[in-house]
Nucleic acid binder design. Structure first.
Lengths: 346, 346
DNA sequence: TCGTTTTTCTAGAACGATTTAGAAGAACGA
DNA sequence: TCGTTCTTCTAAATCGTTCTAGAAAAACGA
């Protein structure tokens, strides 16, 4: 708690120059071991807690942190195991570089506030996790000259990104459904705009997130003659999927397949079927996207994308000392499980 | 991308002093609107991105971030909806104070590394989420004079904390089981030490986390004549609970009730029962702890603690300008659902 | 022994802002 | 008209480091 103890105080107490104390902490081979021990002992005695983080950051130009920019409230961001997996991968690499992660939520209700947060953030680099294109925070990062990597290819084509081919991936899923004879789908879309107490049906141009748009395009491409409806139960979460599926299942006009644009939503849909005594893959087909850990035990057919690797790769690209623009496309894979089956003949 | 543009550059270009430029950003009412506009326009023109975060932090003594210290890898930390809920609450308050969250994992394998990370972190305050007592990072925080709040009462009794009465809460759960006639329990414990490919049985003094110890004490207190065994499937996660429960269910010596020390583990146990055709509450009782969102739809009997409020309260205590030691005890509540039922008579 | 290299340490200038105290001029009340 | 109060702006100090260049002393090679 000894306040006001700086590198200078210690230097004076030991009788050396501030630079030497600094070296004692940062470049141990620049001074004799004996002196170093003496300095460290004195520092301990005076209650000096080591070089101040902000001062060091200012002088050395390294903040020792990378920012992670999220759309909307943190709560929703983390409710998806996909986000957690990504973050885990990123954190792994960050740890290697002894760098921390600065979470910076960009509330959609307060654009200016989000921009300010980014402005004030002491970071060396930034990962854009799920930010709508054109957010002013992006301009600020650019102005500040902060290396930035997005997890989405479409939103910021000019930026560095680590992403998947959303259209191709969704097309694989669509082709699978096509082979099974499905021609009538409902797609569960997450929709930040509608707080979504009640699920709503969307038109194509009401879909907010451009990755979602791409996935829908992929489905359309591989199912050109199908009827595709879009329904949203709100934020990307289990409950939204549940609610949206309830609406669909209880309507007069059931599709033969439900496509969750994320696994959590698809799992919610499976839950809705379960409580209605419907068996996924037999009575109705449900498929998802991402292959989160819970997908396999649930028997959910889905598109696997290497989530953790995505995080790791973003970390590598960001923390690579020789940062340059890089664009990495990761592979995806269709995983067929029990939740998808042939469309009923009628 | 215009590098090297500082407040000074802008000041010179406009023909005012650096202080005025600073005021243009921070204290708009300290200068005429006309001049302010002129400064901001020139800044834009020169590609000045606004006051540098590190410099501002140094001079003003405010980093604009609170640290969140986690034991172990981030991945495990986030795999529990309990952690996510806490973080969401904390983030909500942080947002109010336009403060970011700096995630600082403290790898158990690299104590020194964790300590360094805390040393280097530019933070105004710190929340200790789940850190074993005596970690050197704590001493560093103390030395740096950084306000610190723990989410556990037991680990750092001298610190500020926002917590629940673990013993009392667990005793409520135990009393419920006692009323139902259970006298033979298995407790699922998370155990960071054992990487836990295979579940293992633990003795009481092998339990690492002191909150777990308290919960076990609470159970013992309310079930003085019961047999209580401890089993761990590894880290605190669904899969660990699943694996540990599999071991228990497939053994010759089944208990009448399984207590998950967290809901995720209890849900894993329910999954293990399901695949064996056993019905929770009828064939075997399963109870949990925390009341995460998934507990209710699963019908899991559990102890509710106000997770999000915990996060919010920690945030309030930390970001309150007049920080003093404060110790807040939050209420808990027993929620009886379908997963608990009477012990079979034999 | 003498020049050269290596080791060990230091002085002083950044880093990029904010803050305090105060100056110059405009507006005000009587 | 004169003293007083605002308003608007500035000079200079300061925050706590790290870095560059170089000095002094020690070790080295021949």
């Amino acid at each position: 708690m000894a306040a006001g103890v700086t590198i200078k105080t210690v230097a004076q107490a030991v009788g050396v120059s501030p630079s030497t104390v600094s070296n004692a902490y940062n470049k141990p081979d620049q001074l004799s071991a004996a002196l170093r021990d003496r300095i460290l002992a004195k520092a301990q005695e005076l209650g000096y807690a080591g070089p101040d983080a902000s001062a060091r950051a200012l002088r050395s130009g390294k903040a020792g942190a990378v920012g992670v920019l999220f759309t909307d409230k943190l709560a929703y961001a983390f409710s998806d195991p996909y986000a957690v997996g990504f973050l885990a991968g990123l954190a792994e690499v960050a740890e290697e570089f002894s760098t921390s992660l600065l979470l910076t939520p960009l509330p959609s209700s307060d654009i200016q506030g989000g921009a300010n947060a980014v402005q004030q953030a002491a970071i060396d680099a930034a990962a854009i996790f799920c930010v709508t294109a054109g957010h002013p925070a992006l301009d600020i990062l650019k102005q500040r000259g902060i290396p930035t990597v997005s997890t989405s290819r479409s939103e910021y084509p000019a930026l560095s990104w680590v992403a998947i081919d959303e259209v191709e991936a969704a097309a694989k899923l669509g082709a699978h459904l096509a082979r099974l004879g499905h021609r009538d789908l409902v797609v569960l879309v997450d929709n930040t705009e509608a707080p979504g107490e009640r699920p709503i049906e969307l038109s194509f141009d009401e879909v907010g997130c451009s990755d979602c748009e791409l996935r829908i395009q992929g489905l359309q491409k591989s199912l050109p003659d199908a009827r595709i409806r879009l329904v949203s139960g709100g934020h990307n979460a289990f409950d939204s999927g549940l609610r949206a599926a309830e609406l669909v299942l209880d309507s007069q006009d059931r599709p033969t397949a439900i496509v969750g644009l994320s696994d959590v939503q698809a799992l919610g849909a499976m839950q809705a079927m379960k409580t209605r005594g419907l068996i996924p893959g037999r009575d109705l087909t449900v498929v998802g996207f991402d292959d989160i850990p819970a997908a396999q035990p649930a028997g959910l057919t889905t598109i696997r994308q290497p989530i953790k690797d995505k995080g790791r790769m973003v970390g590598r690209v960001l923390l690579d000392p020789a940062f340059t623009k890089r664009q990495v496309l990761l592979p995806t894979e269709l995983l067929v499980r029990s939740s998808s089956g042939p469309a009923p003949r009628n």
